[in-house]
């Protein structure tokens, strides 16, 4: 047992866990940051998983056909934007119940990506994914260089997105408008802010980021598309927004905790630590819930979350 503990806590294993955790958190970051924008403007989008699947398929298919990864990424952006646009029409203009609409879009994405996979690909195929791009100098830092600075471009971009999202939400007029629309749309409206336009923007942005989250899997980390490959990841991303108390940095913390513990349980099993595998795979979920309970803050959701806005006549 002592030998095992030493093995688990050895430097190379810890560095390995860190590297894995950073990679695993990538899709959550895109999807959850996108969802944060939506929720801060008062729109709950539960269709993230469906948008991710469509993005993952679009990116994979276009890359497979053209051999061009950037075109694939662009396809994911376009498809994500279209899914977001449809969600915006349904929830903003038609005042549909947000939760149910989101589920509808999830089911659409799940079924449609599967259908397209069967009709257009026929079988599981592979493409060369985005290559790792070591950052000069930084990647040569002993020990930590390879952990942080040898990833593909979509991984770096996901982490750069966090401060950017924080900046936009907290330091720009656009962010102020988003927040006021999410807290008090009537007041925002009386100040001349178009509630509908702001929500269109955040929902479409959410769709785009979810699409990229899917691409970060299919052509970023994997180079493969498989039916239902997101496997509930999109729903965890929505939960991470609550976990992160609607703040980009909180979302980052949540995504990292969840992913690092997931990476840890992979190592725990590989090193042959004698605990049941069922227990090991539960670890990230258990720990996330524990952290959530322990850190219950005064955070509260945006006041207008899930409430459609109708301008008084």
């Amino acid at each position: 047992m002592e030998g095992l503990l030493e093995k688990v806590l050895s430097l190379s294993v810890l560095l390995g866990m860190l590297t894995s955790g950073i990679r695993l958190a990538t899709p959550y970051l895109y999807a959850a940051i996108g969802e944060t924008f939506g929720q801060r403007s008062g729109v709950l989008n539960l269709g993230v998983e469906g948008q991710m699947l469509m993005g993952a398929f679009a990116a994979f298919y276009v890359t497979w056909r053209t051999g061009n990864l950037l075109l694939g990424l662009l396809a994911a952006v376009v498809v994500g934007a279209l899914m977001g646009l449809a969600m915006a029409v349904v929830t903003v203009n038609l005042h549909a119940e947000q939760g149910i609409s989101g589920i509808g879009f999830y089911l659409f994405g799940l079924g449609m990506s599967d259908l397209l996979f069967q009709k257009l690909l026929g079988t599981v195929r592979t493409v060369e994914p985005f290559p790792d791009l070591p950052i000069p100098l930084l990647s040569d830092i002993p020990l930590l260089g390879p952990v942080f600075f040898r990833h593909n471009v979509l991984v770096y971009a996901a982490y750069l997105l966090v401060p950017l999202a924080w900046f936009v939400l907290n330091k720009t007029t656009l962010g102020l408008n988003i927040r006021s629309v999410g807290e008090n749309p009537e007041a925002a409206d009386s100040l001349g802010i178009s509630v509908a336009r702001v929500r269109y923007f955040t929902i479409i942005l959410g769709g785009v980021l979810s699409g990229i989250a899917g691409a970060a899997l299919s052509v970023g980390l994997l180079g493969v598309f498989q039916q239902n490959m997101t496997s509930g990841l999109g729903f965890i991303a929505v939960a991470l927004v609550y976990f992160g108390a609607w703040r980009p940095l909180g979302v980052l913390a949540g995504a990292l905790i969840f992913s690092l513990v997931n990476a840890m349980q992979l190592w725990v099993q590989v090193l042959g630590v004698p605990i049941p595998s069922e227990l090991a795979v539960m670890m990230p979920y258990i720990l996330t819930i524990v952290v959530l309970v322990l850190t219950v803050s005064r955070a509260r959701p945006p006041s207008a979350l899930t409430k459609p806005f109708e301008r008084e006549a």
């Binding site: 039916q227 990841l233 992979l266 069922e278 090991a280 539960m282």
Partner: peptide, 11 residues
């Protein structure tokens, strides 16, 4: 390594 899922390709 048992990953606890039949569909989680990234894990």
């Amino acid at each position: 390594n048992w990953i606890g899922s039949f569909s989680d390709v990234s894990l």
